[in-house]
Computed example of a mutant assay.
Amino acid sequence: MTTLFDSAPGFDQPIAVLKHCHDRIRKQIATLDKLLTHLPVHGADQDARQAAQAVLKYFTQAAPLHHEDEEMDLLPALETTATQEDAVLLKQLLPEIMKQHLQMTAQWSNLEKQLRQIQEGSSAQLSALDIRHFSDMYLHHMELEETHIAPMAKRILSDVQMQRLGAAMRARRGISPDTP
């Protein structure tokens, strides 16, 4: 049966959940780009305020959980499991991934202030440069993870490790194991 909407993967597929998060980040970045063209014409109208609210909600609630999934569970599991070439690659990538998380968080604080003003209707100003920096950082970061980290995880983590990862991600979000 075909559904009318895309459903998120379950936590029994934690790497697919992380990829789904990346897809949602791409949608929020697209919304930021749309806001750049919308605001000069329409100002902080209802559509702009709703768009700002959606982006704010995602990057203040879901994105930090996604980073915690990686930092607290996925990357440590990979570190304890990786051998040979995987261990060498991971040793190279981990500092970069952690640095990127910090940089994206710092860049988000610039955008968050602007988006809150748009959400409140008190400003229609949004920095194209701030959005470009934020977008470029996130897109590069997601490419790195999707090219190297996710395939490695699928290849080397055991079923038990994947179950632990999914359970930790579910718990972090306060979702009961009984919830489908």
Rank of each mutant, 00 (worst) to 15 (best):
M1G: 15
L4C: 12
A8N: 03
P9H: 14
D12A: 13
Q13E: 15
I15G: 05
A16I: 09
V17Y: 11
Q28F: 09
Q28H: 00
A30F: 12
T31Q: 14
L35R: 05
L35Q: 08
V41T: 10
H42S: 14
H42F: 12
D45L: 10
D45H: 10
Q46C: 04
Q46D: 08
D47C: 08
A48V: 10
R49M: 09
Q50M: 08
A54V: 11
A54T: 15
Y58T: 08
F59S: 01
F59R: 10
T60F: 04
A62K: 14
D69I: 03
M72H: 09
M72C: 09
D73A: 03
D73V: 06
L75R: 10
P76Q: 09
E79A: 08
A82E: 05
T83Q: 02
T83Y: 00
E85F: 03
V88T: 01
V88D: 00
L89K: 13
L90C: 10
Q92M: 13
P95Q: 12
I97W: 14
H101S: 11
M104Y: 01
T105I: 04
A106K: 03
S109K: 10
N110Y: 07
R116T: 07
Q117L: 00
Q119K: 14
E120C: 00
S122M: 06
S122C: 03
A124Q: 07
Q125A: 04
Q125R: 00
S127H: 02
M137W: 08
Y138L: 13
H141T: 13
L144A: 09
L144Y: 10
E146V: 07
P151D: 07
P151H: 01
M152F: 12
M152W: 10
K154H: 14
L157E: 12
D159Y: 06
Q161L: 07
Q163L: 08
R164L: 05
R164D: 13
G166C: 07
A168D: 02
A171W: 06
I175Y: 06
S176T: 13
D178W: 09
